[in-house]
């Protein structure tokens, strides 16, 4: 799902970042390496670079997101871009009608980079076909969320060294999760052993053919795991539609210290946020010494700086 624009040889030869699917291991690692220098920059007093000076970045969010949107905003600003945030309340508009219309309107304003989140799978790719600028997928339905997977990989790499051979257990609402899909693709590309752990009602059909091992119990799924990655379970899915109740879900799949003990002694805990404390994870684990959740947020800005920088290298007149 990557539109090639430059011949091979460039570290990141793509015009858009629409998903992890289609990225090679070399391209992923190049982005992670680029992120390392962004971390260093972000920890200085002077955080500004001029890579995107004069460029316009529009964050177009059809679905509310504080974390991802502010992360992309900071990343753009640190690279010197003019950043505009647009939140389109999708309940107030007539479905995708505005998607194409908004795309064409924004395109006429000549932005250089569009960062897009939409509730429908494939919507960002559809939009990318309508515009002349670079497009970054900030989450499309239950399809992909590539920068989340990249920041997760960066976080893992900085704490565990090489990702190859690590056992990563992704737990919770796999069915509705774009984070899970992008992580499955990326971690597999980097040679990790990926497991998914969830009740069967929260597993997509055919998941066993996507290069993962499927578990229905935390005890088995977490045994020997290096990384335990928890996913958010949305409130409206706990009322009997997918799981019968919060307490039953927490009892079997909520990550507490007891369940974490099934994993390796040095296993680390991740969560893409926002968390439901007491539903999929206890505060003690989320805020405990083995939690990487705070670090994930920092890595989020760095990875998005790296992605924007990589795409900037392929913009016209770059």
């Amino acid at each position: 799902m990557i539109a090639p624009s430059k011949p091979a040889g460039t570290a990141f030869p793509h015009r858009h970042l629409l998903g992890i699917e289609g990225l090679s291991r070399i391209e992923i690692e190049a982005l992670l390496d680029l992120s390392e220098s962004a971390i260093a920059l972000s920890r200085q007093v002077e955080k500004k670079r001029a890579v995107l000076r004069g460029r316009t970045q529009i964050n177009l969010f059809f679905e509310a997101s504080t974390r991802t949107q502010s992360s992309f905003e900071l990343a753009g600003k640190r690279l010197g871009a003019d950043v505009m945030n647009m939140s389109v309340n999708s309940s107030s508009v007539k479905k995708g009608e505005t998607l194409i219309d908004t795309a064409q309107t924004l395109n006429a304003m000549r932005p250089d980079i569009l960062v897009v989140r939409h509730h429908a799978a494939g919507a960002v790719a559809l939009l990318a076909r309508q515009v002349g600028c670079s497009v970054v997928n900030a989450g499309d339905g239950a399809h992909e969320h590539p920068t989340q997977a990249l920041l997760d990989a960066l976080t893992i790499r900085r704490n565990k060294g090489d990702i190859t051979g690590l056992v990563v257990a992704i737990c919770g609402d796999i069915l509705h999760s774009r984070v899970a899909r992008s992580n499955i693709l990326l971690l597999a590309a980097l040679g990790a052993e990926v497991r998914v752990v969830a009740p069967s009602t929260l597993l997509p059909a055919g998941i066993d053919r996507m290069g993962v091992t499927v578990f229905r119990s935390m005890r088995e799924g977490l045994a020997g795991a290096d990384i335990v990655m928890m996913l958010r379970l949305q409130r409206e899915r706990m009322d009997g539609s997918f799981v019968p109740s919060v307490r039953e879900y927490f009892h079997y799949f909520g990550l507490d210290e007891e369940k974490l003990a099934y994993a390796k002694p040095d296993a680390l805990v991740m969560h893409p946020g926002p968390m439901n404390r007491g539903v999929e994870i206890t505060p003690a684990v989320a805020d405990g010494p083995r939690s990487l959740i705070g670090e994930q947020v920092e890595m989020g800005v760095a990875v998005r700086m790296a992605v924007l920088e990589a795409l900037a290298g392929n913009l016209p007149n770059a």
Binding site: A121, G122, A142, R178, R181, P204, A205, G206, R209, M210
Partner: peptide, 15 residues
């Protein structure tokens, strides 16, 4: 159609 293809695309399947 429900199955691997729908799951990969992140689309809801119809069994």
């Amino acid at each position: 159609n429900e199955g691997e293809t729908a799951s990969r695309l992140g689309l809801s399947g119809s069994p």
